[in-house]
């Protein structure tokens, strides 16, 4: 993997910035997403809200279904594979999907290893809940990062927590005085010192960082943009609402005009019934639930 190869992978993520990537389960939904101004779609068999309820093993989607979505829109199409399942990734790469999401929303295939993403030509996006996790994924070859958040809940608080944590950890590490201290933190994070140093110098991750997991409203999208995310993934929120077209359009406009309250007021009004959702507090081991931030390492 050369620097030029990586630039082509991270370059596509750069083109997605300021945009909204929407989960879709049918070509019809993909067309609605495209028409509402989505910059890409994530093709999957079932949206996270439904996957969570099912309690089943969640795997990569049927390639035929992904192919149908690829043929129905002109914008980039992403697809999810299980953490560590490099064969699912090989299959999706052969399909020529534009981006692969190695996703904690699916059931992990390997509880120790993530995919060695720099062996692939197709770019990968991965979830992260803190700086160390983001850098481990980048070190494995991820060309784009997203917050883990808590997909399928409509509760934005985990996504907020994860982006704030990454930002705060970068700031805290920038205060480190000596080379030894930086080397120690890099060792704790299990990443090369050079990668950590590069982040501290730039004050940000070296790849595009999107918000994901629990975004349900235009205001949620703008909140995460104001907290420093480069763009937004919206999953269950759109197609679980009463008026998907209107909500999708509103989230797209809120992401563009995230720092303009009068515009946000305009697009937040009269959206119909939003996703009911599940609060993060209601998901606990006691009730036999697992938070997504606990999956992936």
């Amino acid at each position: 993997m050369t620097g030029e190869d990586f630039k082509i992978k991270s370059g596509l993520a750069q083109m997605l910035k300021g945009g909204v990537i929407m989960d879709v389960v049918t070509p019809e939904q993909a067309k609605i997403a495209e028409k509402s101004g989505a910059c890409a779609v994530m093709a999957l068999e079932s949206i996270p809200a439904d996957m969570r309820k099912s309690g089943k093993v969640c795997r990569m989607s049927d390639p035929k279904m992904i192919k149908d979505i690829m043929n129905s829109v002109s914008i980039p199409v992403m697809a999810k594979v299980r953490i560590g399942h490099f064969v699912e990734a090989q299959i999706i790469e052969a399909l020529e999907v534009d981006y692969i999401d190695e996703s904690e929303v699916l059931t992990p295939a390997d509880w120790t290893h993530h995919i060695e993403k720099d062996k692939f030509k197709v770019p990968f996006v991965c979830g992260a809940k803190d700086l160390g996790e983001a850098l481990r994924r980048i070190n494995e070859g991820a060309a784009m990062i997203r917050t883990k958040g808590e997909a399928g809940t409509g509760d934005v608080s985990e996504a907020v927590k994860h982006i704030r944590r990454i930002t705060e950890e970068i700031k805290a590490c920038q205060q480190l005085k000596s080379e030894d201290d930086i080397a120690k933190v890099a060792e704790e994070m299990r990443v090369p010192v050079s990668l950590l140093k590069d982040v501290l110098e730039k004050g940000k991750l070296p790849v595009v960082n999107f918000a994901a997991g629990g975004v349900a409203t235009p205001a949620d999208a703008a909140l995460l943009m104001q907290l420093g995310c480069d763009g937004v993934f919206v999953g269950s929120g759109i197609f679980k609402s009463s008026n998907p077209v209107r909500l999708a359009t509103a989230v797209v406009e809120a992401t563009t005009h995230f720092d303009n309250p009068s515009k946000l007021l305009e697009v937040s009004s009269d959206l119909g019934e939003l996703m009911g959702g599940v609060s993060i507090e209601s998901i606990s081991h006691a009730s036999n639930g697992v938070r997504l931030s606990e999956i992936g390492w």
Binding site: G18, E34, G37, C39, A40, V252
Partner: peptide, 15 residues
């Protein structure tokens, strides 16, 4: 700039 021409065009038109 580069990006998605569909997204740019739709956002410009709607706003």
């Amino acid at each position: 700039p580069g990006g998605e021409s569909t997204a740019m065009s739709l956002i410009a038109e709607r706003t």
